[in-house]
Amino acid sequence: MEYIASGFYHALQLILKLDSELLGIIFLSLKVSGAALVLAALIGIPLGALLSLKKFPMRSAAVSLLNTFMGLPPVVVGLFLYLLLSRSGSLGFMSLLYTPYAMMIAQTVLSLPIVASLTYAAVSSVNPVIRMAARTLGANNYQTAVAIIREARMGIMAAVIAAFGRVIAEVGAILIVGGNIAGLTRVMTTAIAMETDKGNFELALALGIILLSLSLLINTALHLIQNNKDVRSQIEGD
């Protein structure tokens, strides 16, 4: 209990002092996770929508595979990417290992199946009448797909929120491919792991509290946007 109280105090001190090292760590965390999330959304949303809207052989196998990948163990992803990005690996020539780019790739790999799979579920749950309505109004295939995806936007937003939760809290993969190098690849989660290893529990806890607060802040903002746009919540509230 003492640790927790002290952790809160320490966290407050660190924030108020605007410690430059801490700010650098926070900024890098947001940059890495933000970039990974954008990449995962750019690839995952069209992929999930395509899986839902387009019928093709082995589609259910592809969906099952995607669902399985939602539970990818971060350390396994980290190890796999390490082998790919290390000097002897097939992507070694890019010299990405121990850079923020490697961490972004790792988090993209981890969050992509979440975005794609939940987008698939969201698009699949759109009332089939919407598809018919769009077609009866003269929409072509592309316009019909856009209308359906627009109807699924709340579910897609939920997919992005879930993926954000995964990337902001992730430590295993980025520790392996990033290396937790101070000022270069140290992010909040890897810093927490390091401080815990060192027995510096107060600082680790303080960093944890800041991470949770940031996560809460961003999630609240995303939920507010989602709820404001979701008229169904107003209907249920009537």
Partner: peptide, 18 residues
């Protein structure tokens, strides 16, 4: 597509967009 855009069907469930 030209023919499809000459006609429309009002469905019983309508299919209101959100």
């Amino acid at each position: 597509m030209r023919l499809r855009r000459m006609m429309t069907l009002l469905l019983p469930d309508i299919g209101i967009f959100n």
